[in-house]
Design a protein around this nucleic acid. Sequence first.
DNA 1: CAAACATATGAGCATGTGTTCATTTGTTGA
DNA 2: TCAACAAATGAACACATGCTCATATGTTTG
Lengths: 125, 125
Amino acid sequence: MTDSNKLPIDFCEETCVHTDSIAHSMRGMPDLDTLFSLAEFFKVFGDTTRIRIICALLEDELCVCDLAEVVGMGQSAISHQLRLLRAAHLVRVRREGKSSFYSLDDDHVRLIFKQGLNHILEEND
Amino acid sequence: MTDSNKLPIDFCEETCVHTDSIAHSMRGMPDLDTLFSLAEFFKVFGDTTRIRIICALLEDELCVCDLAEVVGMGQSAISHQLRLLRAAHLVRVRREGKSSFYSLDDDHVRLIFKQGLNHILEEND
DNA sequence: CAAACATATGAGCATGTGTTCATTTGTTGA
DNA sequence: TCAACAAATGAACACATGCTCATATGTTTG
């Protein structure tokens, strides 16, 4: 059942590597930079405080101190996290007087959030 | 333009809280446990090594040492990460002789990966 | 301009996370 | 049953992350 017959004679020296499978897996794989960015992107979703901020912004914009209230955390903590969310293009700011109103940057964010939520909810069946 | 006329007289004491917005934002929000699980779920995607593993498994199953080869990392490191991926139900194992073959657990994983990838790729326009 | 308020940011610290190294567990074949 | 190989796991260490506290920036209003 093995596909060792396809391999050149002087290959497959010691380890169990399946050259074909490896080659196939690597074909069309995005470059390292892209995968790194992708991981960075998901990392932003991977924190309870940030997820709660994103969740709070699903329908409407909110100012920083409102977010602090909703999430139940200090203004500074929220502000720090908003910085990361901004850097990752997950939220945008609109300044109005003394307040900064934050909202989700695009529908991709909403989509991924809901996709993930579905996954979680289905798991507990 | 403010909606302060809607507020009860003895409210809005010192901070800038917009009671209505806060209430609206909190309505229908998933409970804390769910949001925590969601963050944990995304956290798994938020690492370059794990993303590369997921990416390598997009089309076909691979054994541990193949994955190590594709990702260019030691067997132990891969094994540790696979443990996390298993715990998060992102991959499944199939044992065959000395080897363990890993594959993505369901299409949700593929979907979220691709959704994220789209987001990244669109950003650089 | 000064006071009050909303937000942003820097430093410091405790806690998490990912890798490596060494070792163990599990499986096959002589 | 023992040697060889694949995979899993534990310990240790370096580094990243998220919070708090203090302070700075920016904006409005008296």
